[in-house]
Design a protein around this nucleic acid. Structure first.
Lengths: 351, 351
DNA sequence: TATTAGCACTCGCTTCATTTGAGTGCTAAT
DNA sequence: ATTAGCACTCAAATGAAGCGAGTGCTAATA
C-alpha cells in the first residue's frame, strides 16, 4: 500500500493530537481540527489503512487510534516541524546557566535542572570527563604537626587535593623545597605515567621524605584511576507524575525507580554517541532497558574540555519538537559563553 | 481520666499494629494479637477512652482506630522499645560507608543513600559546614600565558581553588614570590576579615601584581560569602511509593515535589538542632511546611570539622524504632572511622 | 472511481442500587 | 469490673443499566 501524502497528513494529525491530549484520536476529531477538506468517513478508511501499515493501533475496537512506535518514528524523522523556542523559554535557560558554576559537575547539574524545568519532563545527564590532563605543578602545604595537604595543578588549571596524615614531621621550608622538586620532576607528565625510576630517584634525592613521596604518588594514581568518574544525575522525575500515563502508581514507580538507579540510567544512555546531533530513542526500540512507553532524547555536549550527554526522558507521547529545540539550544550554547562574560570560562573547583 | 498501664499497653498495641498494617485496628485484633488477657469488649471500652483522651481516632464510625499525632508522640517518647539493628543492616551501612569518600559532600551523599536503602524511606541531608577556617597558605600557579590558578589552603586542610584569566603576564618566579608574600600577609586570618589596609599594603609592596591581588581578594570574599553553601540532597523518594498512603498519585506528587525542592527541604530541616540526639517530628506538629501525614526523624552528625543534619522522611506510620537506630548507628559511627583504617580521616577535595 | 452519508454494532465508563462484613456502642448477664 | 450478645453504621465490593464515542460496512452521490 502506498504512503500517500494524504496518509502522511493524517498520521501527522493523529500523532500531534495524541501528544496533546493523551486520548485515542478518532476520525471525527481529525476531520474537524486537522484535515477539514475530508469527511470523517474518508479519514476512517485512511486510518484503517494506516493501522494495517503499522503506524497506528487501537487500544480496543471501539476507540480512536494511537500511534505505534513505528508511527512515532516516522513522525520524528520526517513529519514533525521544528519548534521555535519562546523568548520565555530561552530566558529561563539562560538564567539557570548564567549563575557562576563552580565545578564542571555543578554546571551540568544546572543544565540538567534547567532542561527539566523548561521541558517539564525528566532529565538525565552524564559527564564523561575525558581527563587527559598533564601535571603543571605539585604543592605541599603542612597544616599541622602531622598533617599536610597535597595539591596537584594540571595543565587545564584543574586542581586536585588531599589531606594526608604523616608519621614524620614536615616543616614549611622542607615543604617548599619538596614542592619545587616534585614540580620539576613531574611537571608535564600525565597523572598515570610516573615511572618507578622517577620515584626511586626522587626518594634518593630527598632523604627523609619517602613517606610523603609515596603518598603523593599513590594519590596521583588514585586520582588517575578515576578517569571514569562518570557522574550520573537526574532531575525532574516528579514532572512525569502529571502525565496521565503515570497516574497508575505502579507505572510511576517503575520509571521513577529507573531514574533513581545510576547503573540503569547509565546503561540506558551509553548506547549511542552519534556526533553532536540530537538522538531520539522511542519506546523499547530494541536497546532493551525497561523504558517501555518512554522516549529518550539525547544530546552530547562539550564544555571546557569535558564532555558528556544530557537527555530528556518522558512518555512516548512527549513533545519531541520542543524537547529537541531546548536541548539543541542548551548544548550548542555551551561552547560559547552562555550568558556571562569572560568569567564563564574560569573553571573552579573547591571543597 | 487516668492513663493507666492497661491503656498504655493498648495504645502501644494500636500504634504497633497500625505501623505494620496501615489498616485501622479494631478491638478484636488487639484482643487476639496483643492483649490476650482481655476480651475485645473491654478493649473496646478502653479504646473509647483513649479516643476521648486524644490518643486515637476513627476514620469513620464503623472502623477501627488509628493513632493521632498525640498518640504517636507518646509512643515515640515513652512507649516504643529500642530496635536492635540486624547484622545485615549494619553490614549494609558499613559497606556503603567504607568506600573511599573523596569530598565531604560525597561522604554525606553516601550516608544519605545508605540510610535510604536500609530504612526504605526517603532521606534528606544537609551539610552546613561551619567554615570558620583560617588561611594557612596561598599559592599561585600559572598554567598558561594568561591564566593562573589561585589556591587557598585553610587551617583544617581544606583547599579552595579557582582558575583566573589575567591581562598581564605572570611567570613562575613571580608567582612563587607572590605566593610567599600572600601567605605571609594573610596566613592566620579568616577568609572574610582581610582589611583594606592589608590589600593596599600588599599592592604597594608588589608592584605590577595589582590585578592578581585583586583577584585573590575577591575570590576570598566570594568563597567566604558561601558560608551557607548548605548543600541539600535527598534520596529514596521512590521508596515512599510502596506505602499505601501514597498510592494516591496526588499524595505521592505532593511529597515528591517537596523532596525535589531544595528550599522547602531546607526550611523543613532547619528548625531544630537539639544537640546530637535524634529528633522526631511528627505529622504537622506546628512547624508548618506541608509535611502533613509525614514524619521526620533528624540527627546531627559531625565529621572532620564539618557538620550537618541527616533525616528520614516517611509516613507518620513509619517504623520509628528502626529508623532511630539506623540514624544513631550511622551518625555516631561517623566520628570514629566507620569501616576503614586511618585513611578514613583524610579529607580530600577535587574537581 | 473516489467520496460521503447513514446506520448497526462494539465496548469502555459512569451511575446507581444492593450486598457484604468489619467494627462499634450499648445493655444485660456474670 | 468484665464480658457476651446484639443492633447499628458505613466503606468497599459487586453488578446491572445506560451512555456515548468511535468504528466498519453498505449504499447513495458527484
Amino acid at each position: 500500500m502506498e504512503f500517500t501524502d494524504r496518509k502522511r497528513r493524517i498520521l501527522h494529525a493523529v500523532v500531534q493530537d495524541y501528544i496533546e491530549t493523551a486520548e485515542p484520536v478518532g476520525s471525527r476529531t481529525i476531520a474537524r481540527k486537522y484535515v477539514t477538506d475530508l469527511s470523517s468517513a474518508t479519514i476512517r478508511n485512511e486510518m484503517a489503512d494506516l493501522e494495517e501499515m503499522g503506524y497506528l493501533e487501537q487500544p480496543h475496537s471501539s476507540a480512536g487510534r494511537i500511534p505505534t512506535v513505528l508511527g512515532y518514528r516516522v513522525f520524528v524523522d520526517s513529519l514533525m516541524e521544528k519548534y521555535k523556542l519562546s523568548v520565555m523559554e530561552t530566558i529561563r535557560m539562560q538564567e539557570a546557566m548564567s549563575e557562576k558554576a563552580n565545578r564542571f559537575d555543578k554546571l551540568i547539574e544546572k543544565a540538567s535542572l534547567a532542561i527539566a524545568n523548561v521541558t517539564n519532563y525528566a532529565t538525565v545527564a552524564i559527564s564523561s570527563g575525558k581527563k587527559r590532563n598533564r601535571i603543571k605543578a605539585v604543592q605541599l602545604v603542612p597544616v599541622s604537626e602531622k598533617e599536610a595537604v597535597i595539591i596537584i595543578v594540571t595543565n587545564e588549571g584543574g586542581v586536585k587535593s588531599k589531606k594526608v596524615r604523616l608519621d614524620g614531621f614536615v616543616d614549611s621550608g622542607e615543604a617548599v623545597m619538596l614542592s619545587a622538586e616534585l614540580t620539576k620532576a613531574l611537571s608535564g607528565r600525565t597523572l598515570g605515567d610516573i615511572s618507578l625510576e622517577t620515584v626511586v630517584r626522587l626518594k634518593s634525592e630527598n632523604e627523609g621524605a619517602d613517606e610523603l613521596i609515596d603518598k603523593v604518588v599513590s594519590f596521583m594514581s588514585e586520582t588517575c584511576g578515576e578517569k571514569d568518574t562518570r557522574e550520573v544525575i537526574s532531575h525532574g522525575g516528579v514532572n512525569l507524575l502529571k502525565f496521565p500515563e503515570y497516574s497508575d502508581i505502579e507505572k510511576a514507580k517503575e520509571i521513577l525507580e529507573v531514574l533513581d538507579n545510576k547503573e540503569q540510567l547509565q546503561s540506558m544512555i551509553n548506547l549511542p554517541s552519534a556526533g553532536n546531533k540530537v538522538n531520539i530513542i522511542i519506546g523499547d526500540e530494541k536497546n532493551g532497558i525497561k523504558l517501555k512507553d518512554c522516549s529518550l532524547v539525547l544530546c552530547n555536549y562539550e564544555f571546557n574540555g569535558n564532555e558528556g550527554t544530557i537527555g530528556v526522558i518522558g512518555p512516548t507521547r512527549m513533545d519531541y519538537a520542543r524537547v529537541v529545540s531546548a536541548l539543541e539550544y542548551l548544548c550548542e550554547g555551551m561552547r560559547p559563553q552562555l550568558g556571562g562574560g569572560t568569567d564563564k570560562l574560569e573553571q573552579r573547583e573547591e571543597e
